[in-house]
Design a protein around this nucleic acid. Sequence first.
DNA 1: TCGTAAGCGAGACGGTACGTCCCGTCTTTGA
DNA 2: TCAAAGACGGGACGTACCGTCTCGCTTACGA
Lengths: 197, 197, 197, 197
Amino acid sequence: MAGDRPGRKRSEVSRAAILEATRDELTAEGYDRLSIDRIATAAGVGKQTIYRWYPSKSELVADCILAGYIVRPVIMTPDTGDVRRDIATWIRSFAKESRTPSAASLTRAITAAAAEDNAVAAHYQDQVTITQETLVTRLRAGVDAGQLQKDTGVSTVAETVVGALLYRILTRQELDDVFVDELVELIFSGIVNREER
Amino acid sequence: MAGDRPGRKRSEVSRAAILEATRDELTAEGYDRLSIDRIATAAGVGKQTIYRWYPSKSELVADCILAGYIVRPVIMTPDTGDVRRDIATWIRSFAKESRTPSAASLTRAITAAAAEDNAVAAHYQDQVTITQETLVTRLRAGVDAGQLQKDTGVSTVAETVVGALLYRILTRQELDDVFVDELVELIFSGIVNREER
Amino acid sequence: MAGDRPGRKRSEVSRAAILEATRDELTAEGYDRLSIDRIATAAGVGKQTIYRWYPSKSELVADCILAGYIVRPVIMTPDTGDVRRDIATWIRSFAKESRTPSAASLTRAITAAAAEDNAVAAHYQDQVTITQETLVTRLRAGVDAGQLQKDTGVSTVAETVVGALLYRILTRQELDDVFVDELVELIFSGIVNREER
Amino acid sequence: MAGDRPGRKRSEVSRAAILEATRDELTAEGYDRLSIDRIATAAGVGKQTIYRWYPSKSELVADCILAGYIVRPVIMTPDTGDVRRDIATWIRSFAKESRTPSAASLTRAITAAAAEDNAVAAHYQDQVTITQETLVTRLRAGVDAGQLQKDTGVSTVAETVVGALLYRILTRQELDDVFVDELVELIFSGIVNREER
DNA sequence: TCGTAAGCGAGACGGTACGTCCCGTCTTTGA
DNA sequence: TCAAAGACGGGACGTACCGTCTCGCTTACGA
């Protein structure tokens, strides 16, 4: 069969060990301060085995994201018919998950990585897009149900929500209930005083 | 005068050269890949002169931010009486400034720095807060004028706006007019379909 | 036939290719800097094929010597009845052969190998002994013919000659006619002034 | 004064530690198998400190020789008036010194180094020449005293003696009294049978 | 006006990590 | 059943920076 090359196959055990060690380093140390030597040692792997598959530390982190070792997509709860409640639930579960210190520091590390490297940014974007997509889908259903305005820029909304949440994590402010409630209120009702019109 | 110690004074020329070189390195290379050796050479300064004043690269970056070498506060245009127009103008000028590639990459670098280091984050936060404060002030005036709802969480709104804009920069998407318009519409009117009520 | 094992026989083609590649590497790079990887590639052979037969690089070099890829024994010319002339001829032909740069560098490489490794030294010794043996044989004939003193330590003489020649090669001095003539004179007549006795 | 450069001076303590560690490694492991990492660790020195002063391991070994860490010149005993006895004494003390295993293995290592590297060979030659020079001087005195033939190629004699001794060390044969006596006899009297003339 | 106490540029120091080469071993595929 | 191809864990390479430590020199205060 074509594509079958001679020689030993890539060790999936090593690959998994490398990605796990990378995630742990990333959580503990951040993106800069990441050390390939340390990852190799922690994974019980030769450095060359890392460099054979990843030309740079950014590619390694990118594969880590791609393989799902870092970003855990937030699943949308079932459609209750009430868009606002569903979106609020989604945001609340995102917020809850971010409250563990390790999740927050991992998020910061990966954000730093994405900020500094195009390849990581692309993979991160892909993965975050999947997360956003669940939001977008629910929003679009809301539009179809007539609960939301027809011309709603659903992806802009999704990005704004994610952006706001990420910003709070970056600046080390907690995603507390007050913030979440205000964010939901803002997204749905806006800030204009309609009674005065 | 009290506090006057003998010996040579700190050279302001060197300080400025160091901060400029740091900003340039940050723009060109990002936060990791930042090299004190290279900064010292570029600034024509001994390494010890850097270490004398900054205990770590994060403190150096922090001072860089503090001295205004990195974050240029977006100034609020005069109050026209129309909150929405004023806020839109502010966002548009923020967006415009971010369109230069060097500004965007500097923003990403500093965001990475803030994501990875508490000290940088604190200084960054201070500086961004100043920027946000102009937004907050204008929003509060809008509330006072009865144009915005009384219970508007103005700082949450400001954070959401800044978060959304930063997220676009981080993910290397352009801050184009379509996005800005949708963001403004979202912030002011929300997404709920009121006609169906 | 006894000793016949199942499976493919050792490939003599591969063996020859390996030994040739080893000799070439040795000539070009010396004993340290010798790379099994490079030899395998040059010989068009898998590394395992080398390791199957040679437990270490010194054994490989030893076999290289044993198989005559490196030391070419200097043949004694026919016995003319004049020992001094015959020995001088032998030394001269040894010297001539050493004048090619590649032969000299190969000699240096193999001397380094012998200096550092017992196994190589043993094989080298064996091979050089064969060369010395031609000298010893001729010297002994000279003793028998009464041309040389009865108690001559023929092997010491042979070693001294070879040692002196090797030393010149090691120190990168040419084996020119002046040196050869002085060496022959020294060996045969010594340095004592007999007239003064 | 010219030549005074700014910056910290070279540490002579480190230099000495490096050269000592190099000599020890050379004795224990030989020239190939020499590891800069190991030398640095043994010397309690950063690797860069070695590479700052020595572009390659051969230059390091060369400086080791130059600084007298390896070759201990064999001193000529006082002139007794009897050349043969004096030379024999010199050879015997050379032989004695070579009988310690560590001296022999160091000699082999340095010979290997000289065989493989021009720079080492040059420095080694310089140092050995100093040793040979004591021989040459004594021989010349013998010529002047009329004990040796007028046209004796003294440096060829010295080289032959050293070459023969080195060859015995290289081939791991002991420099025993039999060999030494035969060598002295050979050098002084030659092998020609004069009675038959 | 002089000594003394910083600050300065330069650059060597003991180290850590880099990314590469090679070691000797171990699969895997094809002949 | 062997041999090439090539991945594996590991060690050393030579380089780049780290943060610290002298150097010789330049300021600038206070005695």
